[in-house]
Amino acid sequence: MNCHEAMPLLAAYSDGELDPVQSAAIEKHVLGCADCAVRRDELASLRSRIRSEVPYYKAPPALHARVKAALARAPDTLPPARPARDRWHWLTAGALAGSAATVFAWFVGSAILDWQVGTDLVAETVANHARATLGNRLIDIASSDRHTVKPWLSARLDYSPPVQDFSADGLPLAGGRLDYLDGHPVATLVYRYREHTIDVFVRPVTGGKPASSPATATLRGFNVVHATGAGMEWWGVSDVSADVLQSLVARLARGPE
């Protein structure tokens, strides 16, 4: 290792973020390099000064009591779902096509509900989607540029989900979000279709599952489409019609064109 390689790693070394092999390489280099040794000592001295001279502000006892009192007054945690009326206003607005699509999706859904995956995952994707659209955390990284969304997600996950934008077809990528599925962080792509929001959860295929064409279900009024392809498992959830959702998930599962 030379200075050029060692210098940028010195901070990570002093923060204990390097693996043992890298740490040993740094230590070996610093022994024979005065410049890097000075830099390392500066970092160490700044740290020890911060630890000894800078206050760690502990919560005053009164705050503890105040928080407990506030929690006792606060309403309970958000209910998992609000009355259906709120979510279906577009339907009551005369969207006959929407209800027809729901009936269609229900048909298809009941026919194919023996997915290789449990229906509890369907429920979880719907709960995730509902929570995200009701709460204020729909999008963590807002961008229609897949070259922005993909690295943002990859940096937070141990896999890199393929990301595509379909603006040209009226399905623009709106951004990405980290969510949880099946107890693990999962990449979530957010698309818009007219007034609707579509969440697509993406995770690597497990257990060598073959590519499968989209299967559809409906839960609490949301359509859910599942497919595998491009090495990933895809779950689309939305209140858009099942055919729009199916075509989106099918295109994603085919992989980049």
Binding site: V67, A70, L71, A74, P75, T77, L78, P80, R131, G135, Y180
Partner: peptide, 11 residues
């Protein structure tokens, strides 16, 4: 923040 955390605790 505590009140918000309680609200989103199911997440």
């Amino acid at each position: 923040a505590c009140e918000r955390a309680l609200k989103y605790f199911d997440a």
